[in-house]
Design a protein around this nucleic acid. Structure first.
Lengths: 109, 109
DNA sequence: TTATTATATTGCAATATTACGATAAATATT
DNA sequence: AATATTTATCGTAATATTGCAATATAATAA
């Protein structure tokens, strides 16, 4: 035991969960917010902004990238990371549908 | 090490992260979807619907409750669990703002 | 070529999560 | 009271995550 029983849930449920899980860490939220704040997205200075060591930041970036939340491309000696709008849209819409469904339901609590 | 450095991030960043983290598991997504689907929210049958043992489901419910995503109240022998609209609103709005901010930015990738 | 700079990877220790059997607690039913 | 039903908790094993020092890799600059 200890491993999530991924195969017992729908592909959609797993997709939603993995996106939200990737965002479920304050460092990764901070990274996303920083990517938003910076005008151009050559983001070699994320390490200087966060209270974490370079390998740790690199690992968080990798996780965000694996989840599909950010895109990265080599830009000379630096890496250009920026937010992938599509994945953000997807979870925003997912939660929006949830909210809307909730509004049409009687609530006992 | 191994523990998240919560105190190095803002309260807001931690709040967002903890809500999204709580949703970042397919079982908990499935629970939320089930709570939405069922008309009234006397939900003693979640265990029968999910491919997980009763203690596991109970633990997931506890996590959703701790995060503030669901509310639970004793209803005789059963427990009435249902979604807390406020927390759902919060993360939906958070992601919405992120999306909106992104739209006004030049995107290099 | 030899630094220099920037990012990634490896290896590892500390901690957290996931899952479940066994058991407890609380209430309802007989 | 005794039994059944429902949910929670405890204990524990397996696995995952977090964080960083050390090191590797890759591109640029001197």
């Amino acid at each position: 035991m200890g491993a999530t029983k991924t195969d017992h849930f729908s592909q959609r449920q797993n997709k939603v969960a993995s996106l939200l899980k990737a965002l479920g860490h304050p460092a990764r939220i901070a990274i996303m917010e920083y990517l938003l704040k910076v005008n151009d997205c050559i983001c070699g200075d994320i390490v200087n902004v966060l209270p974490l060591a370079q390998p740790t930041v690199s690992q968080h970036l990798k996780e965000l990238k694996n989840a599909g939340l950010i895109k990265g491309s080599i830009e000379g000696t630096a890496i250009c990371y920026c937010i992938d709008e599509k994945s953000l849209d997807f979870i925003h819409q997912y939660l929006g549908t949830m909210k809307q469904t909730l509004e049409n339901k009687p609530n006992c609590c």
